[in-house]
Amino acid sequence: MEHLLSPNVLDIEISGIRKFFNMVGGRENILSLTIGQPDFNTPDHIKTAAIEAIEHNQTVYTHNAGVLPLREAIGDYVNEYYHLDYEPDEIIVTVGASQAIDITLRTIIQPGDEVLLPGPVYPGYEPLIKLAGGKPIYIDTRDSNFKLTAQQLEAHITDKTKCVILPYPSNPTGVTLNKQELTAIANVIEKKDIFIIADEIYSTLTYEEEHFSIAQLDQVKMKTIVINGLSKSHAMTGWRIGYLLAPIWLAKHILKVHQYNVSCATSISQYAALEAFTNGKNDPKEMRQAYVTRRDYVNERLKKMGVEVIKPDGAFYFFFKIDTSLSSFDFAVKMVNDVGLALVPGDAFSSYGQGYLRLSYAYSMETLEEGLNRLEKFILKSN
């Protein structure tokens, strides 16, 4: 009876990241630098807050948008760190950033609408666009150091364009956009009926410059939805707490989709999040410094191997070109078989990732050293 299923579901596949991870998972002596998950534990004070929430029976449904103290804390947090001004009614606490993206797309997309994406890009957007009835349109950013430019964006806008997704800092490339670059993009979109989804889940992990959000620009704030969360900043991937920021006229409609989708985010996780946004504001600093050390180490090792690489200024990934006639997938499989090292094939991030590999440095220095030793061995063997 499979033919009776929705064509939108039949048309999508499991993420290439997970597909490759699952393929090599469980094999002996495989060192994996594939998953973008912090190797830090959730800070103890946040775990304690969750335990206290259980003990105080804070285990019931909450307001659909999230408990008010949490939304107020998020508002204070984004104002302090990103200079953004949002009221509690313009904030929705979600089940991770992924659900925030899903309910936003289902609110704004109609069948046939086009959504612009800078490629290569995180593979989670395309399926959600298709499930909402939209059409993903990829913009090749390989010749602009993986940065979407205003010129590239303008060249791809049609009368069907409904939205552009700005996923910066980027997964898989680690690059980000500065104020000048985002202002140029805002100038293109300002007078057009196009939404902006700014996925800023890696915004606490920027290294040379402070993160700048396009929602800081008044000219596009009323058409911008900011997506963020605690998974990367506070090592809380499994807690599934994200949030979105949107002008009230839009947030009230997204909330309807959210309500019928999940009712509310988990109450216990919400109280843990409240602790993170109030007493855990400095938690990301130690992690960020560790990532800088790891990034610099990986960068130097790759350069010494002769690998063509763009040094990331955010997130915790390297996306580098491979010199081979093999596809990214076949190259990655051969590397697993030959030296026991797993990296994500670049084509998991759209066709524009073909010929690249993604390395996650969200691992200990010891693990990174061994992984890069294996990579160097494989490269020498292949040449």
Rank of each mutant, 00 (worst) to 15 (best):
D143R: 13
T42D: 02
F349K: 07
I268S: 04
Y86E: 10
V309Y: 05
Y260R: 10
M335T: 13
V9K: 14
F21N: 06
I108G: 03
L10Y: 00
S98Q: 14
G353D: 07
I194Y: 08
K303C: 11
I91P: 10
I201P: 03
V292F: 01
T42F: 05
K179F: 11
Y271L: 05
Q289K: 14
P167H: 14
Y61K: 14
P172H: 01
M335Y: 14
Y243D: 06
E300F: 04
V333K: 13
N57R: 10
T104S: 15
Q270W: 05
I194T: 09
P312H: 02
L372R: 02
N299T: 11
K304T: 13
H56K: 13
E55F: 09
P172R: 01
P247K: 09
D85Y: 13
T107F: 06
V78N: 05
I165L: 08
I14C: 06
T324V: 11
L131Y: 09
V262M: 05
A272P: 03
Y82F: 15
L375K: 08
Y297E: 00
A265T: 12
D140Q: 10
S364V: 05
A315P: 05
K303A: 13
Y260V: 10
T176F: 04
L84W: 06
I196R: 00
Q110R: 15
I227L: 11
D140S: 07
Q289P: 03
L357M: 14
L217Q: 11
I201A: 11
P127Y: 00
A155D: 12
A186W: 01
I165P: 08
R240A: 10
E28Y: 03
K19G: 12
I35Y: 00
I225E: 12
N228R: 06
D113N: 13
E13R: 15
N22W: 03
Y61G: 04
I201L: 13
E275W: 02
A251D: 10
R27V: 07
D199F: 05
T34L: 07
Y297A: 05
E275T: 06
V121W: 00
V93Y: 10
G238F: 08
E369S: 14
P127W: 01
S15L: 05
I35N: 06
L343A: 07
G26Q: 00
G133S: 08
V309R: 07
K252L: 04
D89I: 01
T206L: 08
I54T: 07
N261G: 04
S203G: 02
F195D: 04
P69H: 09
E181K: 05
S328E: 08
K252M: 07
L230M: 07
V333S: 06
D140F: 03
Y122E: 08
I101P: 00
V220A: 08
M335I: 12
K334P: 00
A65E: 15
Y202P: 04
Y81D: 13
P118C: 07
K321T: 11
E210C: 04
N171I: 01
S351C: 05
Y352M: 13
I189C: 04
L302C: 08
